[in-house]
Write a protein that binds this DNA or RNA. Structure first.
Lengths: 168, 168
DNA sequence: CCACCTTAGTTTCAAATGAAACGATAGGCC
DNA sequence: GGCCTATCGTTTCATTTGAAACTAAGGTGG
């Protein structure tokens, strides 16, 4: 079942109906627009912002887990984490059983910062989705979850690459 | 109307319900997975692939227009275009009225390559969205369009930044 | 206990990126 | 025509990126 090729059948691609393109395009534009909030006003990179947001939600995480949750490279995560620690927005503590892994959590300053950023991010999101009804919003999230499931199936036919949208 | 903050109201962010995060995450993972097709098998970068795909659809485009359509930086587009020309996948021709703009179009080799890539990309997409019914697929695209409209409204309250998904 | 393999996170290095400066053309406007 | 400003696309340069090598810590099997 394929709707990105309606008219000419073979070899024709209509990008408006090609999900990978549509998602990449919208996501890119949204990320870029949202970054104006956390980048310009709080001097955070995308990577830093994502890490903070996840730590806010999960209390404590390893760098490894953050890689899975955010789909970011481990080098990128490592660097962002160090920058956040330097700014004392998060703190790091070695696991006592396994000296390799280190647990990350928000530092007081990070919590303060988030209390400032998050409401703005939420307000901003609200403006964007103002075009959607409550039902449509829920439908959209539900459909994205379904796509994510299809994706997970392909990404790792038998291995779990973390399904961040379904934490429970 | 906001669903990313259910429980605690102020200052709490649940990422699973935060659209910018969900879109970025899914789009990133899809792009990454799809790139295995055009990168590994055809040695194309994302930028190159997007340009080819758009040229396939629109016959002829200026670099400027490609920037708008793909939400990519003009330096990035410039470089990708030159690489494509070097590989003789596309061709360039100056506009006779305006010597600044140059029109890009697929070269024979580019068309051949696309005839090879596109079916694979479509098949791959089909696998991903196999979890969706036809109706759900259409709904998803429709909802994304609505989000895009909300986004366009914020991006430029009175100026058109090209709505690639609604070409007509 | 000692090879050997795996895993967590860091670092290195080359390539990709984007902001800003640039060159070249075009379009007023006087 | 000469001057000012805007636009298309390229290039420069400093930063960011990610693949791969690396360090350090566990595990495992003999």
């Amino acid at each position: 079942m394929n709707f990105a090729t309606d008219s000419n059948d073979v070899g024709e691609l209509r990008l408006e109906g090609f999900l990978p393109y549509r998602l990449a395009n919208i996501a890119e534009r949204i990320s870029q627009a949202l970054s104006l909030i956390y980048a310009e006003q709080f001097d955070l990179t995308i990577a830093q912002w994502r890490i903070l947001a996840w730590l806010q939600q999960e209390r404590t995480l390893s760098a490894k887990r953050i890689c899975e949750l955010t789909a970011m490279d481990k080098a990128r995560v490592s660097r962002a984490v160090n920058q956040l620690i330097e700014r004392e927005l998060i703190q790091r503590q070695r696991d006592h059983e396994d000296q390799r892994t280190q647990w990350l959590s928000l530092a007081p300053a990070g919590l303060t910062l988030l209390k400032d950023v998050i409401p703005r991010a939420l307000d901003w999101e609200a403006e964007i989705v103002a075009t959607l009804s409550a039902t449509e919003y829920r439908d959209l999230l539900r459909l994205l979850s379904k796509v994510e499931k299809g994706l997970a199936r392909l990404e790792s036919p038998s291995h779990d690459t973390a399904s961040p949208s379904e934490p429970n």
